[in-house]
Amino acid sequence: MSFTHKHILGIEQLAKEDIKLILDTADAFKEVNSREIKKVPTLRGKTIINAFFEASTRTRLSFEIAGKRLSADTVNISGSTSSVVKGETLEDTAKNIEAMSPDIIVIRHGHSGSPHYLAERVGCSVINAGDGTHEHPSQALLDLMTMREHKGSIEGLEVAIVGDIAHSRVVRSNIYALSKMGARVRLCGPGTMLPIGIERLGNVEVCTDMREAIKDADVVMMLRIQMERQSNIMIPSLREYARFYGLNPTNLLLAKPDAIVMHPGPMNRGVEISSVVADGVQNVILDQVENGVAVRMALLYLVSGVESMQTK
């Protein structure tokens, strides 16, 4: 089957077959990253703009490396050094970027829906690299790739996601992706961090007791307490949070013995995850980062095909 999505705005819009194709393509691209010459000419002559209006190390670096390994020209702009600080609107910034005819804009923005707004107003492809508290599709895809690698298949997996569910775009993308691929999701966090009705997004169960959430889970995914989004006002103290919702060697024993531990990063060691677990044998956190490059190569490649077919 062929890929038909010009934009990657969220997992919500993707079908199960699309997700499978992206993961298979990423598997193939992963081999390039282990070569001595880590570059293929696939996207020669394409220009990719990484417009990051919000802080990011991993995702921006990952998209940039992915583009470069496919021989595309990647250019970065960040919020603090762009005309945004002079008061330019997102639409004007986008129009100006578009006037320089890029092929793909990768956007991260603090406001949910910004990539969708952009996609309606520019001619090139748009890839969402995280919008507010809405979606972070490439993160969910690299999570699925890592689960598939370690567990063989995603179907039937019990995935516990613990932490600040309310502020997490990673959670929303993962709920869509995991539900579509046939896994079950258990969400867990303090009541203040669990939005009402989130279970309607997919195959989801919600609970506030962490022990219940991770019991016999195949995958335990810990989320970061997001200081920059005022997570701290929703909990009495970080110490108390760590005690009830932190992953440590003791409560990890409740999960299946071969369960894997994931974290989208950046980690707050000693808060949501103890260092012993973060560096333990069950952690696959750096595999996630490694797979991130392959997944983003797959996304850039697949949307490029659709984009160039349409402009031709």
């Binding site: 193939a28 000419p41 696939t42 490649y301 160039s308 077919m309």
Partner: peptide, 21 residues
Amino acid sequence: DITMYRDDLAARGSKPIGKTE
């Protein structure tokens, strides 16, 4: 697998990529 090295992305779109071993 030569998909990554093809010169006709614009004409034929993104084809599934096989493994190079």
